[in-house]
């Protein structure tokens, strides 16, 4: 048997840079109220959302990703040619073939980086981060760009009073690179396909085309079932991620949950009994729910405003359609 030379990776991986892009157009609740019978007070009390960003035709999935990635690469202080792989998590890029990641990798000026898309809903950032860490430690890439990007306004039913106000658009990106110290903890992740019906697209694309539906497909969810799962089951997953990383709540500086709903965030904080000193991301108020983009966008904002600082220990958890989830503890870039 011939001997195959093994690949050689870094001892550990860490997030070395983060960047975000929020579309120019800010959409207040008043605009949402033009199509549904609700109120600003109702929307704020049920979701915490005051404004969200909606993309213009020019702010495509690729364009937003390139903007966010450019900032992440600059923040990391590396050259785009050092990036060995580009992982894009999205559910709102409407051309399945080819993956949007290849165009992004090319336009960023990478040197033929491996590039592919993943579909893991609101857990997409954690899934991508876990892949990136694996690639770096295994040795197939020195630096990996992980992008979460969504144009959920394209998949929103503006006449559905339960979801019309919920979603936003944007892109968040991180550069993951080699580290001498552990800076990304073990990932606690999984799927619960028996609950696949609780968050889904109203009509699949093939049915939509074949049956000539007049209403474009949108994302719909069973609010109470999702809320219960997100708060109580995901609090357990978050705790498992802390335990797996050997981090006590007292040692934690920042909590960045997927920005699904401020009520889920508040309830999770209560269920997890997080100490007062932990900074909690509540970017949802002005960004809405941006699915895979929400965690890197919230991370970028906390660092930009000084609410969190480089070197802080942060618990991140994503959860959503699948149902899927991923939680881990990271050192902030």
């Amino acid at each position: 048997m011939s001997k195959i030379k093994p690949s050689k990776g870094a001892p550990y991986a860490r997030i070395v840079g983060v960047g975000g892009y929020r579309p120019t157009r800010v959409v207040p609740n008043e605009v949402i109220l033009e199509k549904i019978d609700s109120s600003d007070e109702w929307i704020r009390s049920r979701s915490g959302i005051e404004t969200r960003h909606w993309a213009s035709p020019e702010e495509t999935v690729a364009a937003m990703s390139i903007e966010a990635s450019g900032k992440a690469i600059a923040d990391a202080g590396i050259d785009a040619r050092q990036i060995g792989a580009v992982v894009v998590s999205t559910v709102s890029h409407f051309s399945q073939t080819p993956a949007i990641a290849t165009e992004i990798a090319d336009k960023l000026g990478t040197d033929k980086a491996a590039a592919f898309d993943i579909s893991a809903g609101c857990a997409g950032f954690g899934y991508g981060l876990t892949l990136a860490k694996g690639m770096i430690v295994e040795g197939s890439a020195e630096y990996v760009l992980v992008i979460g990007v969504e144009r959920l306004s394209d998949l929103t039913d503006l006449e559905d009073r339960a979801t019309a106000f919920l979603f936003g658009d944007g892109a968040g990106a991180v550069v993951v690179g080699p580290s001498r110290e552990p800076a990304i903890g073990p990932t606690v992740w999984g799927s619960e396909g028996d609950k696949a019906e609780t968050i889904k697209q109203t009509v699949p694309w093939d049915t939509y085309a074949a049956e000539g539906h007049t209403k474009f497909p949108a994302i719909t969810q069973e609010g109470q079932a999702v809320f219960r799962w997100a708060v109580f089951e995901m609090a357990k997953v978050a705790q498992q991620a802390l335990d797996a990383a050997g981090i006590t709540p007292d040692e934690l500086d920042v909590f960045i949950p997927h920005q699904a709903n401020v009520r889920i965030i508040d309830s999770m904080v209560k269920t997890l009994k997080l100490p007062e000193h932990v900074t909690v991301a509540r970017d949802i108020r002005t960004t809405g729910n941006t699915s895979a983009a929400s965690i890197p966008l919230a991370m970028e904002r906390l660092l930009a405003t000084g609410e969190a600082k480089s070197g802080d220990t942060a618990l991140v958890i994503g959860f959503g359609a699948g149902l899927v989830y991923a939680a881990t503890v990271v050192t902030l870039p």
Binding site: Q224, F227, V231
Partner: peptide, 21 residues
């Protein structure tokens, strides 16, 4: 509706009962 879910989960724990969605 969301607080109701919290009430239900708290009641489940307190009274050892399962209340499905």
């Amino acid at each position: 509706s969301l607080s109701m879910v919290e009430v239900v989960v708290a009641a489940e724990e307190r009274f050892d009962v399962k209340i499905p969605d």
